[in-house]
Amino acid sequence: MCDVCGCGDPHKVTLEVHASLLSDNDREAAHLREHFVGSGVLALNIMGSPGSGKTALLEATSRALAGRLRLAAVSGDLATSLDAERLSAAGVFSAPITTGSACHLDAAMVHHALHEGSLAAAVRGCDVFFIENVGNLVCPAIYDLGQAANVVVLSVTEGVDKPLKYPVMFRKADLVVLTKVDLLPHLPGVSVSVIRENLARVMPSARAIEVSATSGVGVSAFLDWLDARRASSKRA
């Protein structure tokens, strides 16, 4: 019986739910997180626009580590397994997730990928598991994938205003990696300090490092961040 408005209509039932529409995804993500933490794996959700340099950052990371850490990855793309092939060539155990029309990865897609082939074994035996999301600054932000941290890759060629235009993505970021900084001399309208100011308006704990995957500048700062995250997740 309806007791919300007091009409007393015997044919009306009101159900108070107050639950997130993402609760199914969040349950699946919690299951993945338990698996990653239990295996001592640092899982990272790598997000950013198409062409921002997500794959290039992971390639440069693998080269710079030179085998010091065991790396595994899944790469989400609407079509092709090109990114996964690039990462395999760079020494990362890698598998593709081809999403078809989906503009983001969700926890069920990552879970499904772990049940394919030998990815699950590779992830259990690795130190860092990169979940390279579909290139998109909007949709991937809201889906928890069981990661320990979100890394948003933002290339300086995208201009200074992206943090203000895509606040949801940057709010969720634990680290922003500003890529392609070797191109800054050719970008008169782009100032790293303005990008940092804009990040401070949307990112509660603003933290950004500057990297060029081409020259290798700044890659060591990313490795330091990885080491610090691995150490803090082990203490937790």
């Binding site: 309806c2 919300v4 009306k12 039932v13 009101t14 159900l15 108070e16 739910v17 107050h18 639950a19 997130s20 529409l21 993402l22 809201i142």
Partner: peptide, 8 residues
């Protein structure tokens, strides 16, 4: 993003 109420 929350489903608050269903009227049935």
């Amino acid at each position: 993003l929350i489903l608050d109420r269903i009227e049935l």
